[in-house]
Design a binder for these strands. Structure first.
Length: 584
DNA sequence: GCCGTTTTCGGCCCGACTGTTTTCAGTCG
């Protein structure tokens, strides 16, 4: 929903501008929270805001109060927010970019603005060159050099790394460190453990009897480009891929408390600490302690923690169910009944994969063998349709020959359920790329948008609702067509698509390719709440792609997806029955 | 700016690290 995104951006700017004016930090925080809520919701805030009881509906959202609700309504009615405009008259907008530079916070930026006429990244560079920055208070040689380094790094950095890029790197490092002498536990934490679609940096947590050895092993490992910090408990390096990796070394007895802390999210941790306080407890990265109102940290006074060894212990002492990392986003997880979430081992069917018939690398036999080796009972072969000419899509004649070839090949695999399918293009007007007769000859139809992905939201909604309502369609493939960090894709009214999917018993796909992860987590959550069926498919074009499944499962878990709603976890018989019955 | 199982006012998570100063401010997660 692009209005939600636009508004979220404005609230983030208001927050940043407020910090630069020295306003109450909690006021800034409230605006940041509003931005996060808007990004997380699938409801179109524009629709919500024109309702008769708009203010009531908005303030019903936890974290949105009267002031924010008024501003949202103001934006929907006028296209802008007066407070935002007024702040931009006082504070140069270019300072928002300066604030993005690591190490520079609001206090420092304000001093630069007041005393050195810095109003943008460019004027900061000029001030650095002119030597005016180093004359400011608390600006020593090291700080100035750090700013120069950060500017240089920012210029060549590509920003947040995709999940599927960061994960293998993190696993490699964890494996390397686990083999170091003295290491007791080692695993990655942070947004990577929570399965976010992009990762700012990689956090590794370890406990060891020999802290010096692990620090040495970490900073000297292959692929380290630059050592940023090398202390007793924390080391930071930048690796060749341009990603920062932090290693934290903690006491083995408190590994759980540290893991909880370093996994985050920050907002989830704040919620946990607030809850702890209400229970006369105090939570930090060393454990959950009795709260004796002494300002000195309890661990440094020898206070015995109530829990610290494992995350589960801490949740239990806070009277909470264990909350899986993927749910720790302050999206209501503390107040909810947490269901059993889908796991990689639950997946028994791949329902979207390509062969050499279109643009895949597998032959039919290779693809079936690959699926069989993963312990799947079902594999759907879904090559592209004719409109995807760039992907060597099949016309009707070639598709019919392909179906024959699949049926013949399948005879060699007695235990495998091999489905003849297609990934059919959803054309710009919502019609499909084959007629109903052709579609009827297929066991499974995955309908996906590939072209016109910058279509305006209303048309995109009509287009996708038509496809999801089509009686021959089983799965809506990568619904928005977005590519993470490179293409925004469609911004349809996702609730309308979910409603149509529920009505017509069509599954929505989580495309597990880490470039896509489409549906995204928040869409999955809305779909799951509506009782919509979900497919997790890898869209494999080559053997390595089948391993992308884990990213799809992580995204599903972030959307609170249970095995019951995930059609890839069903038994062979249940899945086959649904595929047939759906068309009746 | 938001919120209320002691509150409609007065709070709002917690600690480490860095770099600058001689006891701590600012930033980060």
């Amino acid at each position: 929903m692009s209005v939600n995104t636009d508004l979220a951006h404005i609230f983030d700017e208001i927050a940043a501008l407020l910090t630069l004016t020295g306003a109450n930090p909690f006021r800034a925080q409230a605006n940041e929270r509003a931005a996060r809520i808007l990004r997380d919701m699938t409801d179109d805030v524009a629709t919500l805001s024109i309702a008769d009881d708009a203010k009531k509906q908005l303030t019903a959202l936890d974290g949105i109060g009267g002031g924010t609700a008024d501003k949202i309504i103001e934006f929907i009615n006028t296209g802008k927010i007066a407070e935002h405009e007024e702040l931009l008259e006082v504070v140069p907008g270019g300072l928002l970019d300066v604030l993005q530079i690591p190490g520079l916070g609001p206090k420092t930026v304000k001093v630069m603005w007041d005393k050195a006429d810095v109003t943008s990244v460019d004027t900061l560079k000029e001030a650095l060159a002119a030597g005016t920055i180093e004359k400011l208070p608390r600006m020593g040689a090291k700080t100035v050099q750090n700013i120069r380094d950060a500017l240089e790094f920012q210029a060549k950095s590509s920003g947040r790394a995709r999940l599927g890029v960061a994960m293998p790197i993190a696993q490699r490092i964890v494996e390397h460190l686990t083999n170091v002498k003295g290491v007791q536990q080692c695993q990655f934490a942070g947004s990577l453990r929570r399965g976010r679609e992009t990762i700012g940096d990689i956090d590794i947590l370890a406990s060891t009897t020999k802290p010096k050895d692990i620090a040495e092993a970490f900073t000297t490992m292959a692929g380290v480009d630059k050592i940023l910090a090398a202390g007793e408990t924390k080391c930071s390096v930048r690796i060749d891929e341009g990603i920062q990796v932090d290693l934290r070394v903690v006491d083995d007895k408190a590994f759980g408390a540290a893991l909880l802390y370093f996994t985050g999210s920050k907002e989830h941790n704040v919620r946990l600490r607030e809850r702890a306080i209400k229970q006369k407890l105090r939570l930090n990265e060393y454990g959950l302690f009795p709260n004796d109102d002494d300002d000195t940290p309890p661990q440094s006074r020898g206070v015995k923690p109530v829990a610290c060894k494992t995350e589960a212990d801490i949740y239990a002492k806070l009277d909470l169910q264990y909350i899986p990392p993927e749910l720790r986003e302050d999206r209501g997880e503390l107040d909810a009944d947490i269901p059993r979430l889908v796991e990689v081992d639950d997946i028994k069917a791949e329902l979207h994969a390509h062969t050499t018939a279109s643009d895949g690398k597998f032959t039919i036999e290779e693809l079936i063998t690959e699926a069989q080796s993963r312990g799947y009972h079902t594999i759907a072969i879904t090559d592209h349709s004719k409109s995807s000419a760039q992907a060597n899509g099949l016309d009707e004649k070639r598709l019919r020959a392909h179906i024959q070839a699949i049926r013949t090949a399948a005879k060699q695999f007695k235990t495998m359920n091999v489905l003849c399918g297609s990934e059919v293009d959803i054309r710009v007007d919502g019609t499909l790329d084959y007629d109903d007769k052709m579609l009827g000859e297929l066991d499974i139809v995955v309908a996906s948008p590939h072209a016109s992905l910058a279509q305006e939201p209303k048309k995109a909604t009509t287009r996708l609702v038509a496809a999801v309502s089509h009686p021959m369609v089983h799965v809506l493939g990568h619904p928005t067509g977005r590519l993470i960090n490179s293409r925004e894709g469609l911004s349809p009214d996702m609730n309308a698509i979910i409603a149509a999917a529920v009505e017509h018993d069509t599954a929505l796909e989580i495309n597990a390719n880490f470039m896509r992860l489409d549906l995204r987590d928040t869409h999955v959550r809305a779909a799951v709440e509506a009782g919509c069926k979900i497919a997790i498919n890898t869209d494999a074009h080559a053997a390595a792609h089948i391993d992308f499944l884990r990213y799809g499962v992580l995204t599903g878990r972030r959307g609170w997806l249970t095995p019951e709603l995930c059609i890839n976890t069903w038994s062979k018989a249940k899945l086959a029955t649904w595929l047939k019955l759906k068309r009746q």
